[in-house]
């Protein structure tokens, strides 16, 4: 049996990057508790449009928790109160009738607000460009199983690859650090045989780009707690280890690069 909720929303409204922004208060009455949080916002927006007002802007795409587009802070917690869930998969049944809900965008110097709840996560793309890839010879497709990978290694790499790049880790981190995202992207490739040729340059380059935008890790573990994909901070330890190893291994070519990987 679904029931209806009457809610009061306090939503961050900001016209553009240069605007200072402020909270706006909206009544959300008659919300079916089978709706997702985004569907609830759709209803509120339809009513706003009907009243000739500017709808609340938010990022979204797949609405099944795998694309990484959606995400904002609900009552002080990225992606809201339900662990392991993106806002598109967060259902209104986790709220109570009469609740006041505060909704705010990710806050980080690296994630400037574009409008309302939409932020630019372009620095994540810069981190990926710095080494979140493998180089492979083109030509005829190889047999799928020609490179043997132990099952536990494949599983661990897949756990890291589950990162959807939503940015909740940065949003939750009191330091605005992107360690969980970066470490997941590094581990995903550094664990696998295909990632080995660029292993050391990957970690140095990606960490360098990460540190040029984001804060540093002080092991609060907030990122792990809010990650909708349950990425473990063990990957951060692995990134630190790979980074330190790369630094000690790669004495002549500090900036990394293919020649620096020798040895």
């Amino acid at each position: 049996m679904s029931k209806n909720l009457n809610l009061t929303l306090r939503v961050w409204r900001q016209r553009g990057p240069a605007d200072s922004g402020a909270f706006g208060t909206y009544k959300a009455d008659g919300i079916n508790d089978d709706m997702s949080f985004l569907e609830m916002l759709d209803v509120v927006n339809e009513r706003l449009i009907g009243d000739g007002k500017d709808p609340i802007a938010f990022d979204h795409d797949c609405r099944e928790g795998i694309c990484g587009s959606c995400g904002f802070v609900i009552d002080g917690r990225p992606h809201g109160p339900q662990p392991g869930t993106t806002v598109c998969q967060l259902h209104m049944r986790h709220f109570n009738d009469g609740d006041d809900i505060t909704v705010e965008p990710w806050r980080a110097a690296a994630f400037p607000i574009i409008k309302d709840l939409v932020v630019s996560r372009a620095p994540f793309d810069k981190i990926i460009q710095a080494g979140g890839y493998i180089s492979a010879p083109t030509g005829a497709a190889r047999d799928a199983n020609s490179t043997l990978i132990p099952k536990p290694t494949a599983d661990l790499a897949f756990d890291a690859a589950a990162c959807i790049g939503c940015g909740a880790c940065v949003a939750a981190c009191p330091n605005g650090a992107a360690q969980l995202f970066t470490s997941a992207k590094i581990a995903h490739l550094n664990l696998l045989p295909q990632g080995q040729p660029e292993r050391w340059s990957r970690v140095t380059s990606m960490v360098e780009v990460m540190e040029s935008y984001f804060g540093s890790c002080t092991n609060y573990r907030e990122c792990e707690a809010v990650c909708p994909k349950g990425i473990s901070i063990d990957f951060i330890a692995k990134m630190n280890r790979d980074f330190l190893q790369a630094k000690f291994r790669d004495k002549k070519k500090l900036a990394g690069g293919p020649l620096g990987d020798a040895g």
Partner: peptide
């Protein structure tokens, strides 16, 4: 995974500040 995600809203809106780090020749 990231490449499969939705296109990011125009990043040209406002580029975040980049910290440039001086390259020391001394390894330490």
């Amino acid at each position: 995974m990231l490449s499969g995600s939705a296109p990011r809203t125009s990043a040209a809106a406002q580029a975040p500040a980049v910290r440039q780090r001086r390259k020391h020749h001394l390894w330490v």
